[in-house]
Design a protein around this nucleic acid. Structure first.
Lengths: 210, 210, 210, 210
DNA sequence: AATGAATGAGCTTTCATTCAT
DNA sequence: GATGAATGAAAGCTCATTCAT
């Protein structure tokens, strides 16, 4: 692979530093100064790469979503059967969650929540350039083709895939948030099994049961 | 009804104003000045009732949870059958959500999210007096006795009520958050039905089906 | 003795409380609120007895000086011989100092310094009603008649009593201040002896020495 | 002479401005805003050079003491005889006092008093990093070697140099304070002579008088 | 391109003082 | 007379952003 051009590398370094800082201190309390320090660059340099603090955060959002999209799309595009895919969506989500929570350095879980509230505030004030709710929907709908396949093949019961996808991701997000908040009070594997019980069994077409 | 004593009224007025401001601007960006202005009082008066900004926010948290707890506890304590209660938990939640979303004045949905992120940050830094994760669990566990009754009566399949309660509330929270974020892109009634399909049907003991 | 009228008693109580607070926190940082609390009265009541914070402090100054004046005047008016009186001025001063320093409650030493700096600032801005430098001179000049007597009787060498009085009190003040500041690093009795050596011996008319 | 590097110059400028402001208004009432204005810089810039208001004042203390120490040490290290040195200590002090009083711009006399009360308060609360009473003692003890020399050479009577040094400086400080307070009511030269009479004659070993 | 010194708007918080009760 | 709730001016301090180097 060709190495990233120097500029991109520095841009990436700033984003990484900013994620760590915003996660620790929040978007409002996190300062450009500490981001610059963490990135080992000058304060002014941040402004060479990003218009302002908000823009920087929007780039973080973009980055986070890109990574999420790639991950879920890979699962959706894999050669597994629909049922396996759906199970894998859940496994993948819980693994991802575990990984986010373990990432003490960057506290990505908090970044996700900052993104959430930033997006909600954006709905209210509508200041940012990009439509954040649309980006969320894009993510949700990585599940839709899987569901459609499953319905076609008769594995899943008929349903509105748009709604199920939303239900699936929104629920998982809530679960992730509160799981983090409860700091190991609940067992991740047990939750995963319950989640599968509802979301996978809930739409399985139990043909053998007739 | 006897009116609230004058100071309680003013304290309440401040909390209402603060909720509106924090919802609109966030905890960090929302200023005491604008809270005071919205409450039609002097800046200094806020400090007569609350030690500082954070304490004020913690009072809001307390208020919000109290209201939630009372609501769900009432449902749990009602004379309905377990299945009806579970359904009603969902109906109640969606009604509550609708009401929160419609409350343009106070944007309570955003307050809930601010509470969420405040709590998560609290897990990270552990500064506040009260254990916020415990308060959340208290809320979750309003559902537990309902589930236990249902299991005893044979209406529900055996399950770990602690986990199901968590799964239920955490998912509903995620759904609420993203439903707000999507601003009517999804239909609330359709979502409600789907939610019931998974959470109610998912634990029904289908005796008649053999 | 007839008891003080109720008002005077309360005025006195406020002054006592104010002295304690100003000594501990300084004139600028000491608050009316804490004075009122210490005096067990309402904040507003302070303003019934004193126009404002500065006036209150000026009353303290007046009180402190009155006490000092009375003390030194008593010594000056006593039936001792001039040499004994001069010695006693020093003894009295050191005893007073000891007492001030031991008064942990009120830290009167700090009050004296606050008065000093208040007076100096007054010289600069000239805001207060009373001439503070004149009040200091009044205090200084309690020593003058003693000196004049001593000169007349031939006990003391001829000198400008006005200057010696100033020298005497100003030096003692400096000694008191720095003695307090050094917190027992120097021994009070040893200092007292040195002080006598300079100030008493320094003006003795050593007739027997020829 | 090479000019000070730019930042040292600005740091110095801030200290000068702060001295003027604190002298005029006191440490508590003097504001960062007025310091910045006097130094022709922005408010925030003050915080680029000093952590906070107290730290700034501590730097002033350090500066003032350094200057005093250098001055008295120079006298002590000069090639004069002990008696001359002692006389010169007094002359130097009165000259310094004259100069402080004449410095209308900075009112250094008031700064010294602010330092004094700051130090006393520090004894009470013990917040500052540096031991202020120790710094005062360092200053006092610039006189000690002079006295020791004089005793060895037989010029001075035997005495505890530590105590005499304290007595000397503490008295001079008191004299300075009250001289300032009396605004020319007393004549500086006459006071100087009296001071010499007590402090120099007081310890002279009058060998020829037998 | 990279920097960090400089800045002032803007924040939280304190508190002397007022005044209705 | 006594009170303390209410207030807003005023302060210390922070930090996003700019800009000369």
């Amino acid at each position: 692979m060709t190495p990233l051009p120097k500029d991109l590398k520095k841009k990436e370094k700033i984003i990484q530093a900013a994620m760590a800082v915003f996660a620790r201190d929040g978007l409002a309390k996190g300062t450009i100064a500490s981001i610059a320090k963490k990135a080992n660059i000058g304060k002014g340099t941040v402004y060479e790469y990003f218009q302002n603090k908000n823009t920087l955060f929007e780039h973080i959002i973009y980055d986070v979503f890109k990574k999420l999209l790639v991950g879920y799309t890979e699962v959706a595009d894999s050669s597994m059967k629909p049922i396996e895919k759906l199970n894998y969506f859940i496994d993948y989500s819980y693994d991802y969650l575990d990984q986010l929570i373990k990432d003490d350095q960057n506290n990505q879980m908090l970044i996700l929540t900052e993104i959430l509230i930033f997006s909600m505030r954006d709905v209210l004030h509508g200041k940012s350039e990009i439509s954040l709710s649309k980006i969320f929907r894009e993510l949700f709908e990585t599940l839709s083709p899987v569901l459609e396949d499953g319905i076609k093949s008769g594995d899943f019961i008929p349903m509105d895939v748009k709604y199920f996808s939303f239900l699936f991701f929104a629920s998982l997000d809530g679960l992730g948030l509160h799981f983090y908040l409860q700091e190991g009070y609940y067992d991740s594997n047990k939750l995963k099994e319950y989640t599968k019980q509802f979301f996978v069994n809930g739409i399985l077409n139990k043909r053998g049961e007739k």
